[in-house]
């Protein structure tokens, strides 16, 4: 087997510039793929984070809200009982007008809007935590317009914009990754053909002395796999650098500090890195195999 490895590395050295181009292209496409995977992971985590916080708010109308500290009015008790009985609902919490005002004061402490708001302008609310956060819309349709209800808001729709932004980042990254991957595939395929052509005499002699097709072609496959793996390692290195020098700064900034959960080093090295190595190796092998089948007949 030593022989096969020697041949493979001789092949990589022989087309050194081509090998470098191949590795770089592979690294870029895998890097983009890795970035996409990190985006997906971040989106999932952000969703988890937000879904544990968000709720459907059933705001009560003025007469029902007035002077009810603990949801003791018949309308409020009725609504609350009905919500708690629903299989969609995990729990219901009552926030009276005074509690709402206290929270409002806390959030906007020191800001001028505080002067304009009185307890009377805030409704009492039933905060409904969903068993399945994705089905809040059903509560909205069921309870909108009910007696005693002012309006019903699914908070998920307010964070939907954030998710759709993260989603398009992910899609754009994957799109670029696919285009780059195509370029990498063509380069790998081309290099193998070139490599096979420069070694055709050698391969012819090998076949003549009874080498199997498999034996003559394994060096080319190894060339491809080495390219894929080296590309994946470089891509992972690139992601680490990107995380340390770009993302970490961005995420700790004022805007995003507590909005998006940070990406950890373990996400890059423990999850994306191994995935990229496997993907790189598998894709390179497949490309190499198909190329040899289709174009190299010796």
């Amino acid at each position: 087997m030593m022989f096969v490895w020697r041949e493979a590395f001789a092949g990589l050295r022989r087309n050194l510039t081509m090998s470098i181009a191949m590795v770089i292209t592979t690294a870029i496409s895998l890097g983009l793929l890795g970035a996409g995977l990190l985006a997906v992971r971040t989106i999932d985590r952000t969703e988890d984070l937000y879904y544990s916080l968000i709720a459907v708010q059933v705001a009560l109308d003025e007469p029902t809200s007035a002077d009810d500290r603990d949801c003791s009015s018949p309308v409020c008790t009725g609504l609350r009982g009905e919500l708690e009985a629903s299989p969609l609902v995990a729990s219901v919490e009552y926030e009276s007008r005074d509690d709402a005002f206290a929270r409002f004061q806390r959030i906007y402490a020191g800001q001028s809007i505080l002067q304009l708001v009185r307890p009377q302008s805030l409704p009492a609310t039933l905060r409904v935590t969903m068993a399945d956060p994705l089905r809040g819309e059903e509560i909205v349709t069921q309870y909108t317009g009910r007696p005693g209800v002012r309006n019903v808001v699914d908070q998920r729709s307010t964070v939907a914009d954030l998710f759709s932004f993260l989603g398009s980042v992910r899609n754009a990254t994957f799109g670029l990754a696919v285009v780059q991957a195509l370029a990498a595939l063509l380069l790998i395929s081309n290099t193998i053909q070139l490599s096979a052509f420069t070694r055709r005499t050698e391969v012819g002699i090998m076949r003549l002395v009874g080498a199997t097709r498999w034996y003559t072609q394994v060096p080319f496959l190894i060339e491809a796999v080495v390219t894929g793996v080296v590309g994946a390692v470089l891509a992972t290195g690139g992601l680490v650098l990107g995380k340390v020098f770009f993302l970490d700064g961005l995420m700790s900034g004022r805007l995003l500090a507590n909005t998006i959960p940070p990406i950890g080093m373990s996400d890059v090295l423990g999850y994306v890195g191994p995935v990229l190595v496997v993907v790189g190796a598998v894709i390179a092998t497949a490309t190499g195999y198909v190329t040899l089948r289709l174009y190299v007949r010796t």
């Binding site: 005499t201 050698e202 012819g204 002699i205 076949r207 003549l208 002395v209 009874g210 080498a211 199997t212 097709r213 034996y215």
Partner: peptide, 22 residues
Amino acid sequence: AGRRVPRLRQRMGCVFQDFRLL
């Protein structure tokens, strides 16, 4: 069959006018 050809060639030796050395 194509995959059996190497077995045949391993039992045959070939020499050519142009030597065909590496």
